[in-house]
Nucleic acid binder design. Structure first.
Lengths: 160, 160
DNA sequence: TTAAAATGGTTAGAATTCTAAACAAATTAG
DNA sequence: CTAATTTGTTTAGAATTCTAACCATTTTAA
């Protein structure tokens, strides 16, 4: 078996573990990991737009919209269209949302975090660095693959 | 920001990159990564059951069923119920399925693999080992959390 | 100033993935 | 041997996530 295949399999296991935990979280607390993440980010950043949240947790706007569609009717979050720029939608966490955040555990398995924290400092750093490296190796391809970007660059060039 | 939060963010980026690639793959070749993975595994292992595939690529049986539901009508795979044990369903890849496998690229970004292969041997090993370690740290929780296992053990004990 | 382009958000439609529940078939135990 | 359990698969229903298409609004450019 090729090395990168082993890597892929490990990745799938991790993805699966995260997904399974998210469902458990949902059953226990009524919130999935993405929902919790969105809620936490709105709370942390105060008055934000959909786009800000999307980019800060690395999801598409459409995905954030669909997560908000689940949070809003439950009264955890408020959407408020801006009067100055009517395209923009401001997001606010309600008191109920704050309570939900307080009551919910971390969006990663407690067990994992416990184990992680018992590692030596340098080991933790090394684990994080490796993950970031893999992410980088995978993201790079996105950047130079965007046709939109290319058009913009050409235009920029033409106006120099 | 806590270290494990940084880890989680990197993980999300990686998951996203894999998902985006899978969609691109689908547009280019008509097969998504999971579909390709299932197909490849059936081909590699010959006469297998749904359950075997599920465990070999770390998905639930239900998920494999839904992937097969997409592969079968396209004539890439054949399901054949066993006459000996009628619960079991044998899986076979058709010639069309074989062609699809041959025509399709790897289920991971070529770009990533290229980058990965330029790394020194020890670096590759280290990356894989780290991923496996994280997977292990996340999976472990599953194993000792099963109430079914507990009941079985008690029963086993009683019959010793 | 008016037409074209960019921006922000949502909707539509699809794939993956899970758990829970159903079902049939096979195995085990009283 | 019959009842209970286990096993293998599927169905149902839900959440996440994407891209593509769409709309309304704002900004830019001819």
């Amino acid at each position: 078996m090729k090395k990168y295949e082993e890597l892929l399999i490990s990745l799938r296991k991790v993805i699966r573990a995260i997904d399974i935990y998210s469902r458990k979280l949902n059953k226990d607390s009524g919130l999935t990991s993405p929902q919790l993440l969105v809620l936490q980010n709105i709370a942390a950043q105060g008055d934000v737009m959909v786009k800000d949240i999307a980019s800060s947790i690395n999801l598409s706007s459409a995905t954030v919209t669909s997560i908000l569609d689940r949070l809003e009717p439950r009264g955890l979050v408020i959407r408020q269209r801006s009067t100055i720029d009517k395209r923009k939608v401001g997001l606010h966490v309600t008191q109920a949302g704050m309570d939900a955040i307080k009551g919910a555990p971390t969006p990663l398995q407690e067990h994992f975090i416990q184990r992680f924290e018992t590692l030596a400092e340098w080991e933790q750093t090394q684990l994080v660095a490796t993950m970031q490296r893999i992410a980088l190796m995978m993201d790079a391809q996105d950047i130079d693959a965007s046709p939109v970007l290319e058009l913009n660059s050409l235009q920029d060039l033409a106006h120099k």
